[in-house]
Amino acid sequence: MATAARVPETEIVRRSEGGQSYVDGGAVLAGIAVATAISMLLVAFGSGIGISLTSFASAETLPGLGMVLALGLWLLWLQVTASLGGGYVTGRLRRRIGDAQRHEVEMRDGLHGLVVWAGGVIIGSLVAAWITTMGVSTASHIVAGAASNPQAASMSDYYVDRLLRPEAAAPAADVSADARAELGRLLSLNRITAADGEDRSYALQRISTATGLNEQAAAERLDSTLAAIKARADHARRLSVLAAFVTAASLLVSAVAAWWAATRGGSHRDEAIDHSRFTAWR
């Protein structure tokens, strides 16, 4: 009696999946489009209430700790919401291939969600780079305009003004623009600390001449100004570290959200969950 040849199960699965890619490009693009649209919507909303990526665009006005935390929560909300939306769409639209087991289907759905998340991160990075470039361009225009506009001010100008502010009883001395610029360069290069005797002596002489202060009072004013500059720089460094940590944490949470949403979308696809009640307008 003839017996039928038994074909290994792996060959059956391979033939049913032959020539097909495991990555559903259309579903991924749809998920990225939805995630990007949600991100743009929330960016517009955040800008409307005064919270946006441009909060750090100006080096002249540093945000406070509360502003950084608010920006971090807004960024977390933005990324998680966009990842949930994009991940669910790509999971729901992805085509199943062959007779893959349930755990493999869930894995592929989740990986599609991660691809959507990665695409969103790339687009967000490009947008952030563009904002940074625009910020640098704007700063260069401000600096160029300051040369021709005496009313244009910067933090460097403020600290120079603070050093050259005359005493109430002393007449204001006429300080040339070149002398002010030179003093500003000494400040920016940190060349007038206690260890730099020649530059410090020159700065003290300029301050005494302009303000009428004696050498000791001029030294006290210079040291207090340098302390204020150092405190501002330390504050900026702390804010930068906090902002970087919040950004990394929100990216990690949004990646998990994209994976979970994609697996839920795939589960609803396989179970044919009916969402028509959300789209019935009658």
Results as ranks from 00 to 15, higher is better:
A57D: 07
S58M: 05
S58G: 00
E60W: 07
E60H: 09
E60I: 08
T61L: 10
T61G: 02
T61N: 13
T61Q: 15
T61C: 06
T61P: 09
T61W: 09
L62T: 04
P63Y: 04
P63H: 00
G64S: 03
G64F: 03
G64Q: 03
L65W: 06
G66E: 04
G66C: 04
G66L: 01
M67G: 13
M67N: 10
V68G: 06
L69W: 03
L69R: 02
A70K: 05
L71V: 05
L71C: 04
G72K: 04
G72H: 02
G72R: 03
G72V: 03
W74G: 05
L75S: 14
L75K: 08
L76V: 04
W77Y: 12
L78H: 04
L78N: 08
L78Y: 01
V80E: 04
T81I: 05
T81S: 13
A82M: 02
A82D: 05
A82K: 07
S83A: 15
S83W: 04
S83V: 08
S83H: 03
L84I: 15
L84H: 03
L84C: 06
G85E: 02
G85A: 10
G85D: 05
G86M: 01
G87D: 04
G87V: 10
Y88N: 07
T90L: 00
T90F: 04
G91W: 08
R92Y: 12
R92H: 10
L93M: 14
L93A: 07
L93Q: 11
R94F: 05
R95H: 15
R95W: 11
R95A: 12
R95S: 14
R95G: 13
R96S: 12
G98E: 02
D99G: 08
A100G: 00
Q101S: 14
R102D: 09
R102L: 09
H103T: 13
H103Q: 13
H103M: 13
H103R: 13
E104H: 11
E104M: 12
E104Y: 09
E106V: 10
D109P: 11
G110C: 12
G110E: 10
L111P: 04
H112I: 10
G113R: 08
G113Y: 09
G113W: 08
L114T: 11
L114A: 14
V116A: 11
V116H: 03
A118H: 06
A118P: 05
